[in-house]
Design a protein around this nucleic acid. Structure first.
Lengths: 221, 221
DNA sequence: CCGGAACTGTCAGCGGACTGTCAGGTTCGA
DNA sequence: TCGAACCTGACAGTCCGCTGACAGTTCCGG
C-alpha cells in the first residue's frame, strides 16, 4: 500500500511518516504543492494524506484538479483551519475525510485504515476470504483461527489482494503498490512472494489468472 | 435514497431529519437501540446515521453486530464522546465516518454526500449476452452460472465482442484491438480464436456475418 | 562489535499453458 | 456449381508462472 504524504511541516511529516511506515505502508513524502499534484495525477497511490497549506499550490485546488480529472483515490485532508464551512468546502471538493490539527497519530492511522477499507468496499477492520482472516489493526493473519507469521512484504501483498478480494489484480498493479520506486518488468519478485505466502498459508486463497494476475478468492471458486 | 436516522435526542433528530429530507433523501427515524439494529439488519438503506448513545443497545455494539453479519452499508457515527481513543474505536468498529457533536447540519450533509458518493463507485460491471455473463472485475466468464476458463487472448476477444454486442465487428477491427502492431491478413488467427471461444462456451453467442465479421448476440437472432 | 537469523530480490530451470500457423475440410452465397 | 470465406484439428515455438537455491542486506542479541 503506497501512501502519498503531502505535508510541508517537517516535524509532522516525520512523525506521521514514521507511524504510517510502522503500520506497514509504503510512504512517499512530498512538500511542494505542484509536485504533489503531479505525483497524485500520475502515480499509483492507495491513499493520499493532504495538508491544505502547501507552498506553490493550494491543497484545495490540487484536490479539485484531481477530482476534475477523474482521479478517485481516497484523500484525507489535514488542516489547521478548523472552521466548519471550510471543512464542508474540503469535503465537497472531493476529500474523503478530514482531520483537524492538532490530532493524535492513532486517530490518523484509524482514519487511513477506514479510508482504505472503504475504498476496497469493505466495512470491517477484519478482512476475510475463505478460511483466511486478516486483521488490519493488529496486522495479523489467521487461517482457521491459527495465527500465521508473515514477513512485512508478504503481509503487504496479502493485504492488498484481500482488500481487493474478488478482483483480478495485475502484477504491475501489485508492483506499483508494493515498491516505492521504479518498476523493472524483468523481475519475478511478485511471483516469488506469492509462492511464499501460499506456502505459509497452506490454503489456496490466491488464485492465478494466467496472463492477467492474481485474485484473492475462496478456494472453490 | 432511504436513510436511517438513529438518534434519540428529539431536537437533533428533528433538525437533521428536516435537513436530510430537504436534501432529497427519504428519512426514517428510530430512537430505540434494538429497533435500530433490527432495521439496519433487515431494511434497505443507502446509508445510516448512527448516534452512539441510544437506549436499550449501545451504538458500537449495533455497528459491530452489523459488520459481523456482513452488512456493508455506509454508517456515519455521531457522538458526544469526543476523546480520540473512543473515536478510533468507533472507526475501527466499522464506521465509515465520524462526526462529533456539536456539528453543523451543513457538515453532516456534506459527509453523507461523501459516503453515498463513495458507496456508489464500487459496482461490478457485468456484461450479459444470452446465457453468457462476463464479469470485468473478476475477468471471469460464466455460462448459465457455470464458470468458464478462457485464456487471455480468448477473454479479450469475447470482451470486445460483448462490449459491442449487437454490432458487427470486422476481423480487421478485432485484429487491431487484439494485436499491438502489424496486421497480416494472411493469418487466420482470429478465426481460430473465435473457434476456441465458441467451443469453450458451448453456446452460440458469436454469430458469423460472412464477409463482414462477427457479432455477439442471442442464439436465436 | 560480531555472528546468526530473518528478509528479500535474483537467477536458472522446468513444466505446462498459450497461440499462431498450416493443411484440409465445410459452408455459404452469388 | 464454383470459389471465397470460414471452420477445425494438429503441431510447435514461445511465453508465463512456479520452485529451489543463493546472495546481499538488515536486524538483533550477546
Amino acid at each position: 500500500m503506497r501512501i502519498l504524504l503531502a505535508e510541508d511541516d517537517d516535524r509532522i511529516a516525520r512523525d506521521v511518516g514514521a507511524a504510517l511506515g510502522a503500520a506497514g505502508y509504503i510512504v512517499e513524502r512530498e512538500a511542494d504543492g505542484e509536485e504533489v499534484w503531479f505525483k497524485g495525477d500520475t502515480g499509483e497511490y492507495a491513499a493520499i494524506v493532504l495538508d491544505l497549506g502547501l507552498p506553490t499550490m493550494d491543497g484545495l485546488s490540487i484536490l479539485k484538479r484531481w477530482r476534475a480529472a477523474g482521479r478517485t483515490f481516497p484523500v484525507l485532508v489535514l488542516t489547521a483551519r478548523g472552521t466548519w464551512n471550510e471543512r464542508v468546502e474540503g469535503i465537497d471538493a472531493g476529500a474523503d475525510d478530514y482531520l483537524p490539527k492538532p490530532f493524535r497519530i492513532e486517530e490518523l492511522l484509524a482514519r487511513v485504515r477506514a479510508l482504505l477499507r472503504r475504498a476496497a468496499g469493505q466495512a470491517s477492520a477484519l478482512l476475510q476470504v475463505g478460511s483466511v482472516t486478516l486483521d488490519t489493526r493488529q496486522m495479523q493473519v489467521t487461517v482457521n483461527g491459527v495465527s500465521v507469521s508473515l514477513s512485512p512484504q508478504e503481509y503487504r501483498l496479502l493485504s492488498y489482494l484481500m482488500h481487493h478480494a474478488g478482483r483480478v489484480v495485475s502484477q504491475l498493479e501489485l508492483t506499483e503498490h508494493l515498491y516505492s520506486q521504479d518498476i523493472e518488468r524483468e523481475s519475478n519478485a511478485i511471483e516469488v512472494l506469492v509462492g511464499r505466502v501460499r506456502r505459509k498459508l497452506g490454503v489456496d486463497v490466491i488464485a492465478t489468472r494466467r496472463g492477467f494476475g492474481y485474485m484473492a478468492c475462496e478456494p472453490g471458486a
